[in-house]
Nucleic acid binder design. Structure first.
Lengths: 238, 238
DNA sequence: TAAATAGTGTCTATGAGACACTATCAG
DNA sequence: CTGATAGTGTCTCATAGACACTATTTA
């Protein structure tokens, strides 16, 4: 109205890609470039970057593109978490970023970063140990993505996207437990998951010196299932 | 990286302000200006507009400002819903908007619109009747805000922000029913609400030719309560 | 008294929690 | 047989759902 020319605001997308590796929930980080003029040189950050209005059909397409370019990966789950815009998050001035949460099985991973894998890093988010500060406000963004992930894991089937194609219920339960940071009751867990009718039975597979487990595979469906009650006795976050 | 100057993207905030009036859930609309060059002249739209990096500390401050400027109102609940950015939503080119959901009691309302109240309009969102198309992609934004509202009302105490300061449990239940579009069981509703320890008892008030109801008032707390199970037998949306 | 709305008593149904039990493999 | 992990039987408990019942007001 009163501003004759609307300049626009620097607009980016950042992606918190989680996986479960080595019995821990981990998030993918990329190293910031060392070039002159770039803020936070050589610091770790979430993968992401500015929207390219000529290449990105929409915000989610930008998130997919950034993930593919920086990691060579197409995640089976990608959802918008929130947007953060203010004058302080980038030393160059007012900017807005659009945070996405991505999930994938660790055995899909074959990371590449413009030929330099040393610029990629999995960081465990378990434990309260002080972590190295990330670039920009990415510590906050990571916290927001983690809160979203944990909140949804309390009452949805989201963790199936952290599993390989075929998996057992014990493996799925372990994944839930790692993300939630607490143990779950076996019988209740199995009853719920099977009642949700999310999984197809596939052939049993050989394992070690014990009864072989039934393997399952996600049915064709995009959305995750919402359970009528949250897991465990803990109230859902919020 | 390869673009020497990052131009930025036109960045706006839109607010879906809901209230319950006349036994219906209603959303506030503002009329687009008739000026030459403005897209969608004189069409109805959600209140909102471009971010002013000199005045808005962050996205939420921008939403509050737009709401105050266009309606004279400070809503007791304001939350971010999602962001939509693509090349098609504005005929002038790629843009991103940040959608907020606001709730307030209808008896707080004293709308003003730069001196012209005819540019404001409450639209009922009940019923499947085809509505007049809104400007930009605001039909989509309204749908997203409605979905968020209805989903959260299934398992939270959000509707307390649609109530006046003092209210009865019957009135609160009616508000839930209007938003959800279905009736709830009285006993279960009252038990849940009271067990959540959200409300303080205030003095009874005179009513009509019947037993006077107990009035309640929201305790001091910012966040809405999350119930362990959704209301009714219907599964939560999602 | 009737009419109207507020609020409760109580039984049933569902599904989670606990936990001990059985099942099936390698050796 | 043992050891290990997979999977089940069954009891208890919390809370929603149904619905009839009582309570309190004005007229």
């Amino acid at each position: 109205m009163d501003s004759p020319v609307t300049r626009g605001v620097p607009c980016s997308v950042d992606v918190a890609l989680f996986t479960v590796r080595d019995e821990a929930l981990q998030v993918l980080l990329v190293r910031r470039p060392a070039e002159d003029g770039e803020p936070f040189p050589e610091r770790w950050s979430l993968p992401g970057g500015n929207i390219d209005v000529d290449r990105d059909a929409d915000l989610e397409a930008c998130a997919s593109r950034k993930l593919l370019e920086e990691t060579g990966v197409v995640a089976p789950h990608l959802e918008q978490v929130a947007s953060v815009g203010n004058a302080l998050r980038d030393p160059r001035g007012w900017s807005a970023t659009h945070l996405y949460l991505a999930l994938m099985a660790s055995d899909y991973l074959e990371l590449r970063s413009g030929g330099n894998a040393a610029d990629l890093h999995w960081m465990s988010v378990q434990g309260e140990a002080p972590r190295e500060a990330l670039a920009f406000d990415h510590d906050l963004l990571l916290e927001m993505a983690l809160n979203r992930l944990r909140a949804k894991v309390e009452y949805t089937s989201l963790p199936v996207f952290l599993m390989p194609v075929d998996f057992t219920l014990s493996q799925l339960q372990r994944t839930y437990e790692i993300v939630l940071g607490r143990e779950l009751e076996k019988k209740a867990f199995r009853t719920r998951i099977l009642a949700a009718d999310l999984l197809d039975v596939v052939a049993r597979k050989k394992t070690g010196p014990n009864r072989p487990a039934q393997y399952y595979r996600l049915k064709r469906r995009r959305e995750s299932h919402i359970f009528a009650r949250p897991f465990g006795s803990a109230p859902p976050a919020g």
